[in-house]
Design a protein around this nucleic acid. Structure first.
Length: 424
RNA sequence: GGAGAGGUGGCCGAGCGGCUGAAGGCGCCGCUCUCGAAAAGCGGUAUCCUGUAACCGGGAUCGUGGGUUCAAAUCCCACCCUCUCCGCCA
């Protein structure tokens, strides 16, 4: 959420930010509602002030045994007016809130202006895609042939887009989770967290999934609860409505959770394999920082995610999302894309963003500076480190051999009982 | 699921219709004392909104939302959450 004062005072900047994102909002209505809100507020506060003063008088008179009947009658009328005005004020505030809560974040000045993913600049390309002396197979074929992936039975159990792993496949998923968490906690300074996988509406609103994107979520029947689409949601909301001390920052958490996404509107995309599932595991990194350090922390965050790919020796590249491709809550986002030989393409495997104070304002996460009165929103960041299902898919494709077997990346072997190859 | 207790400031805890944004204690910050520290003493220590160039002022907030009243932390209603006991259960 943007600060109401900021929007009021920087209407044209907000307007152009929206335009660059390919978004829009009724800023005229906002401005009108904001003006009338403040007018009403001034009037209400004046009346309340009078009521407070006269009520004190009444108290004093009663104590001295004087009759205060006329003042009581007067205040009865004033209270009626206050009540009526409060009602219109609440309506006005609701309109404002409706608009404000749906405004996306303002992109950071360093974010390139662009229309869609075609305009995302590539920052760096790391690793060289392997040259195959046979035609590389897609990971779903490799997995099914090795009997470690079974999409057909998964769809019987639930439906399309759910994973079912067996044997070395399930083991590798677990190995990847342990490998990533171990790396982030012991080498990158993150604290491991195990949060709830189901959260309430307020929490979903705090990180920006609601109210605009409810169709992307799974909602529980008869509960106002939702399945998390990423660990970002419960982990960022750990400090919802809290005031942190400056010297507590930065706070760095990592969590592995299943992620549940309805994938509404993705019909026909990635219909096979592990790339786009309704349920997948992801190791997430979340940071709470001061405003002046958040962009440095973002660079570190990306490097932390990249380290996972480097250790696994998977080729990748890093891109910056342009304004038109940027997510709702983010001020700046780097995507990491891993090389997928069968598709002959780089595919997203991590997304690392700085949300600045956008989520913090929604979720009420503030901090207090030493020797300075008042509070400020913290800056929140998060990034995948990494999406586990996609990492597994990348390993299957990049490490496949002509005979259909798959070599286990060296970094992963300690987590797989020393196993070197997956074969039938 | 059944029975009970409770939600007040960073923490503990009083208040149970007006003089209470809230006693007292702890913690924290500053000052005095001290060679220094401790102890002791004094002072200061919530958040949000709003007006003002600023000094400073106004309003709101005692789990949340409604209600009663001239006036609510205090009374009434609903909801949420926490704790204890019983039952059930991975």
């Amino acid at each position: 959420m943007l600060e109401i004062k900021y929007v009021r005072q920087n209407l044209s900047e907000v307007y152009s930010a929206l335009k660059n994102r390919g978004d829009s909002a009724d800023l005229e209505a906002f401005q009108a509602a904001e003006i009338s809100r403040r007018e009403m507020l001034a009037e209400i506060e004046e009346l309340r002030h009078r009521r407070n003063v006269v009520s004190d008088e009444i108290a004093g008179m009663k104590k001295r045994g004087k009759d205060a009947g006329d003042r009581v009658a007067q205040m009865r009328e004033v209270s009626g007016r206050i009540k009526a005005l409060e009602k219109s004020l609440a309506e006005s505030e609701e309109i404002l809130q409706e608009i404000l809560i749906r405004l996306p974040n303002i992109p950071h000045p360093s974010v390139p202006v662009g229309k869609d993913e075609a305009d995302n600049p590539v920052n760096r390309v790391v690793g060289t895609p392997r040259v195959f002396d046979f035609t590389p197979k897609a990971h779903w074929t490799i997995g099914e042939d090795l009997k470690i992936l079974d999409f057909e039975r998964a769809s019987k159990i639930t439906g399309a887009r759910f994973p079912l792993l067996f044997g070395a496949g399930a083991r590798m998923e677990r190995a990847l989770i342990n490998f990533m968490l171990e790396l982030h906690t012991t080498e990158h300074g993150y604290t491991e967290v195990l949060p709830p996988f189901i959260v309430n509406r307020k929490t979903m609103t705090g990180t920006g999934q609601l109210p605009k994107f409810q169709e992307d979520l799974f909602k529980l029947e008869n509960w106002d609860y939702f399945l998390i689409p990423t660990a970002e949601v419960p982990v960022t909301n750990i400090y919802q409505d809290e005031i942190l001390e400056e010297d507590q920052l930065p706070i760095c958490y990592t969590a592995c959770t299943p992620c549940f996404r309805s994938e509404a509107g993705s019909y026909g995309k990635d219909t096979r394999g592990l790339i786009r599932q309704h349920q997948f595991n992801k190791v997430e990194m979340v940071k709470f920082t001061t405003p002046e350090t958040s962009y440095d922390e973002l660079e570190h965050l990306v490097l932390n995610a990249e380290t996972v790919l480097q250790r696994l020796d998977l080729p990748y590249r890093v891109i910056t999302l342009c304004t038109g491709d940027l997510g709702f809550s983010a001020a700046k986002t780097y995507d990491i894309e891993v090389w997928m030989p069968a598709q002959d393409k780089y595919r997203e495997i991590s997304s690392c963003s700085n949300f600045e104070g956008f989520q913090a304002r929604r979720a009420g996460i503030r901090f207090k500076r030493k020797d300075k009165k008042g509070t400020e929103p913290v800056h929140t960041l998060n990034g995948s480190g990494l999406a586990v299902g996609r990492t597994l898919a990348a390993i299957l494709e990049n490490y496949q051999q002509a005979d259909g077997s798959v070599v286990v990346p060296e970094a992963l072997r300690p987590y797989m009982g020393g196993r070197e190859v997956i074969e039938l």
